[in-house]
Simulated assay, not measured.
Amino acid sequence: MGTAKDQTCAECGNPGSLRTHLDCYRARKARKERERKASLRATGATSADLNRGTQARALGLQTETLVSLMARPCDVCGNEAPEARKNNSAYARKDTGAVTGTVCQRCASALGYLGHDPERVRAALALLTSEDDHRDATT
């Protein structure tokens, strides 16, 4: 394999590799995505199917795996997805990206408010389960 100077860009035909031509790289990536979406639509796929496929790739999952995760009840509260929403969400850890379970919209918001920080979640749990009573005993 030659150097970038010896290569010809597959998109524009000019000297250099596709990696050295950022505009060509972006154009090729956009064209491939349009082609993928067109082929899926030709098979009768809906926009929700396309979105699930995009989300699955972003999470590093197969689409079928993501769909089965989204159909499960919330791993935090156990609630099924409300009928209006139809699906829960796959939860990916913010520090590692590992997909660890399924959460409903309310629990996903709660985890977000706690900054997806396990220490803050533990502190909140300790507060919720505390037997301390700080009310003035003389009143």
Rank of each mutant, 00 (worst) to 15 (best):
G2P: 14
T3F: 11
T3L: 14
A4Y: 10
K5C: 09
K5H: 12
T8F: 08
C9E: 01
A10L: 12
E11N: 14
G13C: 07
N14T: 14
P15W: 02
G16A: 07
R19H: 11
R19I: 03
R19V: 04
H21G: 01
H21M: 06
H21P: 06
L22T: 15
L22Y: 12
C24Q: 06
C24L: 09
C24Y: 03
Y25H: 13
K29D: 15
K29N: 14
K29H: 14
K32F: 12
E33K: 13
E35S: 10
E35C: 00
K37C: 07
K37D: 15
A38R: 13
T46M: 08
T46N: 07
A48W: 06
L50H: 04
R52L: 08
G53K: 03
A58S: 14
A58I: 01
A58V: 06
G60P: 08
L61K: 00
E64W: 04
T65R: 15
L66Y: 01
V67E: 04
V67G: 00
M70P: 00
A71P: 00
R72M: 13
C77K: 04
G78H: 02
G78L: 02
N79Q: 15
E83F: 05
E83C: 01
A84K: 10
A84D: 12
A84Q: 07
R85N: 09
N87W: 11
N88W: 03
N88A: 00
S89D: 15
A90Y: 02
A98D: 14
V103I: 15
C104M: 05
Q105G: 11
C107R: 02
A108E: 00
A108N: 12
S109R: 11
S109N: 09
S109E: 11
A110T: 08
G115W: 01
G115M: 04
H116R: 05
H116D: 15
P118G: 01
E119H: 08
R120I: 08
V121W: 05
V121A: 15
L125E: 05
L125R: 10
L125H: 08
L128Q: 08
L128P: 00
T129W: 04
S130F: 04
S130V: 08
D132Y: 01
D132K: 10
D132G: 00
D132E: 13
R135Y: 10
R135D: 15
R135F: 14
D136T: 13
D136H: 09
A137E: 14
T138F: 08
T139M: 11
